[in-house]
Simulated scan of single mutants.
Amino acid sequence: MSFDPASLRFDDRGLLPVIAQDHASGEVLMLAWMNAEAVTMTLETGRVTYWSRSRQSFWIKGETSGHVQRLVEMRIDCDSDAILVLVDQTGPACHTGKRTCFYKALRDGAEVELMAPEG
Rank of each mutant, 00 (worst) to 15 (best):
A32L: 04
V39G: 10
A116F: 07
V68N: 03
L8A: 14
I60K: 11
L15F: 12
V28N: 12
Q21Y: 00
A24I: 00
D11K: 02
P5A: 04
M34F: 06
T100W: 08
V72N: 13
F102Y: 11
F58H: 07
D81M: 04
Q89R: 02
W51C: 06
L8Y: 06
F3V: 06
I60A: 10
E27K: 09
F10D: 07
N35G: 07
D4F: 11
S2F: 15
G119I: 02
D108S: 13
A38E: 05
D12C: 03
K61W: 05
R47I: 00
S7Q: 15
I19S: 06
C78R: 10
A36I: 05
S2G: 09
D4M: 13
D22C: 01
T45A: 05
S7H: 09
I19L: 15
T96I: 04
D81K: 06
P92G: 01
V48D: 10
W59V: 04
R9W: 04
G119T: 02
C101Y: 12
K61N: 08
L31V: 15
V28G: 00
F3Q: 07
M41V: 07
V28Y: 11
T90E: 14
S80F: 10
D77C: 09
V18G: 00
L84W: 12
F10A: 06
A38T: 01
W59F: 11
M34N: 03
G97N: 08
D11L: 05
D12K: 11
D12T: 11
V85S: 05
Y50H: 06
G91L: 12
L106Q: 03
P17K: 04
M34Y: 08
C94F: 08
W33C: 01
Q69D: 10
Q56H: 14
K61C: 02
I83R: 02
M41G: 01
V39P: 09
V68A: 00
L29W: 00
M1I: 08
